[in-house]
């Protein structure tokens, strides 16, 4: 039998995303056999990161100082805001390097089955931004399942006001892949959203 301290470490690790009971056990056994200094360093890094990181009060991104560097960046186009579900989605869009506007993190999507209502999301914050900032266009970039689509639809209705353009990112094929790899739903959506050339 494993000592109690190891068992509780395994239990704590197993709560992390992507870590199953097997991996948790492996990591725990590795850690308790590693030099104390290295482990202390890891523990400090975790605590330090957790203490430093907060949500940007404006857009909801992960940041060390609020407002975050994207919100503060004057070279970015303040009239353009992209709505995403989670803070990590910003990283994906930033990696693409093509978006020069600002972001707004919703914090989820409306889900009547999981009891997530519009009030649980950062929609009111977005409405406040609409009155305070010179926003002219909103791009909705939520997931494309039923709840994501319904949330997009709801947002488009609720945010409608004079002088504001609202669009959603296109459904389509992954770049650089052939048609044979696309599933039927993606393909039919891509056909629906075709563009004139």
């Amino acid at each position: 039998m494993l000592p109690d301290s190891i068992t509780s470490l395994i239990a704590a690790l197993a709560k992390l995303p992507g870590v199953g009971p097997r991996s948790a056990e492996r990591i725990a056994l590795h850690l308790v056999q590693t030099e104390a200094e290295t482990v202390k360093h890891l523990a400090n890094a975790i605590v330090h990161a957790r203490e430093k990181i907060q949500f940007c009060t404006t857009c909801g991104a992960l940041t060390e100082k609020s407002p975050c560097s994207i919100c503060e960046d004057s070279r970015r186009d303040g009239s353009l805001v992209c709505i995403v579900e989670r803070a990590v989605d910003i990283l994906s869009i930033e990696k693409s390097g093509t978006f020069r506007g600002k972001f707004h993190v919703l914090g989820g999507k409306i889900s009547p089955l999981d009891g997530v209502e519009p009030e649980d999301l950062r929609i009111a914050e977005l409405e406040k931004r609409l009155t305070g900032e010179p926003i002219k266009e909103i791009i909705i970039a939520l997931s494309t399942d039923v709840e994501g689509d319904a949330t997009s639809h709801y947002l488009a209705k609720r945010l409608t006001r004079a002088g504001l353009k609202i669009s959603r990112i296109a459904y389509g094929l992954p770049a650089g892949s052939g048609l044979e790899f696309a599933d039927e739903l993606t393909l039919s959506r891509a056909l629906e959203g075709r563009r004139e050339m």
Binding site: S111, P112, L113, V146, E147, D149, A150, H153, Y154, R158
Partner: peptide, 29 residues
């Protein structure tokens, strides 16, 4: 997807006073 939309919509209809705009969004799906 359709059954997910039905279940979501039913969950909304079970609420005391469903938000009409929200109901409409799921109706559209």
């Amino acid at each position: 997807r359709y059954m997910q939309a039905v279940r979501s919509r039913n969950a909304l209809l079970k609420q005391f006073a469903p938000d009409p705009r929200l109901l409409e969004s799921f109706s559209e799906q």
